[in-house]
Every structure is written in structure tokens, then in C-alpha cells.
């Protein structure tokens, strides 16, 4: 039995209970809220519950460039805000998303008060459920957004100290957080995190020290990992699943399964493995636009 699509309203798909920031708060505070909640934009609402703007990752990057994290949110927010009524249909929302390149819209009631927020992913997700084409149960944290086209390319560098076992994975972890903050889609974040983690583990197991550099742009994420180790004698052999030269002590800890390079290859769109005069260099390219 199919319901009329027009019956699905914004209030049915929106996220209720809005996390907002005060206009007099600092950009730093807004950034912390967004980081801890994993949001790429939050509405700016004053104490009279009046919507003044939205502050997004792009605004925060602008503040970062000016070294102005202490500045007030109201100075960096985007004040031209488009809202949608809670009683509007999801069809109207889809048109709005199509016509404007925003990732989210605040939802207002008839009195103009903000009652929720709706993302592109919320609408698509609920429509999928409505149409019975969803494969996975939805949950609150699901916020699948397309790649954010707005962010400015940036470089992430991380020194890898081999045998510093306790800290292994922190480079990948930092990279993951940066990508998530930039609003990169989940699949790309996951693939980048896996590739970076495995590369980091390889440096720890096989080399003395190394360095991870990630060039991040909306079109391409390039992770370069260079180490000062023995390199690889037979690269095609090392690419095979199950082939490993890791020492026993690492194997006991669950490493050295011979899955590192195969995992990286599977996660990457392109992978170059080359011996250098110092050690090994991996160039891992992940291209978000390839994702359907």
C-alpha cells in the first residue's frame, strides 16, 4: 500500500532539537561544537530564539586563515539564511537543495522559530525508507552528505615514529577527524582512514621513522607515506594477501597478517609503491568524485 508522497513533510524527516551557537560566542567555540558533534554547519540563534545566520566549515576556515578563532561567530557567520517551513513537503526541500548549494536548512514553524534542522541526507534517507529501497536501518548519527565542494585545499603532515607503538594510528586518526570536519563523505573518510592506518602500521613494523603527508582537496586526497626503512625487495609479492615479513612480536599483537598493502590497494583509487634511496614511498590517491 503506497502513501501519497506529498504526505511526507519536513517535520517528519527533520532533526528535532537544534544544536545552535550564540552570535557572541567565539568561532573557536563554534568549531568545538561542530567537531564534537560531527556537524558541518550549525545555526546561529540569539537568546530570543531568533535565527541570525549559519556558521559552516567554510566560515571557520575563513576565520582560521585570518588567525581569528577568537573572533565572534556573528562576524564570520553566513547571514543570508534560507529556511524551510516544518509543514513543507520533502519535494519542496529537494528543490531547495537543488537550487542552493547548502548542505542543510534550518526548519522554522509558522511563528518563525527554529524547530529543527534538515540535511540533504535526512530527506534522501527518509525517502529511501518511504519507498522501501533502504538497505540499512537509519539512525540519528547518519548524516551522509555529498563531498563538500567549498573547502580550500590543505596539507596535513604527521611524523611517524616507528616503534612508538602506543601512538600508532594517531596520524590516521587525526586525518580522519580533519576529513570529517571538512564534510568529506563517509565512504571517502573510511577509505582514507584505512589506507593511512595501514601505512602507519607498516612504518611502525618495518622502518625506523617516517612521515605522512596528505594533500586534501575536494577532488582528490593524496596520502604520501615515506619511511626510512629497508624498502621492499619484491613489491608484487608484498602486494599479495597473506604475505608478511613482520616479526613475531607484532604478529602476536594482531599485526602482520599480510593484509596491509592489499587493504591500502583496496581502499585507494590509485596506489604507487616505490623504493627510494632512504626507504619506501607509498603514494595513495583517493578521488571522491568517483563515488556514485
Amino acid at each position: 500500500m503506497k502513501k501519497n508522497k506529498e504526505q511526507l513533510l519536513i517535520k517528519d524527516v527533520m532533526n528535532e532539537g537544534v544544536v545552535s551557537v550564540h552570535p557572541e560566542a567565539s568561532v573557536q567555540e563554534a568549531k568545538d561544537i561542530m567537531r564534537s558533534r560531527g556537524f558541518s554547519g550549525i545555526p546561529v540563534i540569539d537568546k530570543d530564539n531568533c535565527l541570525l545566520g549559519i556558521i559552516s566549515v567554510a566560515d571557520i576556515i575563513r576565520a582560521l586563515e585570518n588567525d581569528a578563532l577568537e573572533a565572534l561567530v556573528k562576524e564570520y557567520m553566513t547571514s543570508r539564511v534560507i529556511t524551510i517551513n516544518a509543514n513543507a513537503s520533502v519535494g519542496q526541500a529537494l528543490r531547495l537543495f537543488h537550487n542552493h548549494k547548502f548542505g542543510r536548512f534550518p526548519v522554522v514553524n509558522n511563528e518563525g522559530e527554529v524547530v529543527g534542522i534538515v540535511t540533504h541526507g535526512d530527506v534522501i534517507g527518509r525517502l529511501a525508507v518511504f519507498l522501501g529501497i533502504d538497505e540499512e536501518p537509519l539512525d540519528e548519527e547518519k548524516e551522509q552528505e555529498p563531498i563538500n565542494k567549498e573547502f580550500i585545499p590543505q596539507i596535513f603532515e604527521y611524523p611517524i615514529r616507528a616503534l612508538d607503538f602506543d601512538r600508532t594510528g594517531e596520524g590516521a586518526s587525526s586525518l580522519k577527524k580533519i576529513l570529517a570536519e571538512l564534510g568529506v563523505s563517509r565512504d571517502i573518510v573510511r577509505r582514507s582512514a584505512i589506507a593511512a592506518y595501514e601505512a602507519e602500521i607498516n612504518v611502525m613494523i618495518h622502518a625506523r621513522e617516517g612521515k605522512m603527508t596528505a594533500n586534501i582537496s575536494p577532488q582528490e586526497i593524496t596520502i604520501i607515506v615515506e619511511d626510512q626503512g629497508p624498502g621492499i625487495d619484491n613489491i608484487p609479492l608484498a602486494m599479495r594477501k597473506g604475505y608478511s615479513t613482520a616479526a613475531d612480536k607484532f604478529r602476536q599483537m594482531g599485526f602482520g597478517a599480510g593484509m596491509g598493502l592489499p587493504n591500502i590497494k583496496k581502499s585507494a583509487d590509485k596506489l604507487f609503491v616505490e623504493n627510494t634511496c632512504k626507504g619506501l614511498r607509498l603514494i595513495i590517491k583517493i578521488m571522491p568524485e568517483k563515488i556514485a
Partner: peptide, 19 residues
């Protein structure tokens, strides 16, 4: 409240878990 479990994976080889 919003900690949702969607499935389960069993493994001790970290790269296998990663994959």
C-alpha cells in the same frame, strides 16, 4: 541514547578487522 549497533564483527587480526 544514540549509540546504535548495526552489526557485529569478530576478529583478532587488526588488518582483517580494518578490511
Amino acid at each position: 541514547d544514540n549509540t546504535v549497533i548495526k552489526g557485529c564483527y569478530i576478529g583478532d587480526l587488526l588488518s582483517n578487522v580494518m578490511a
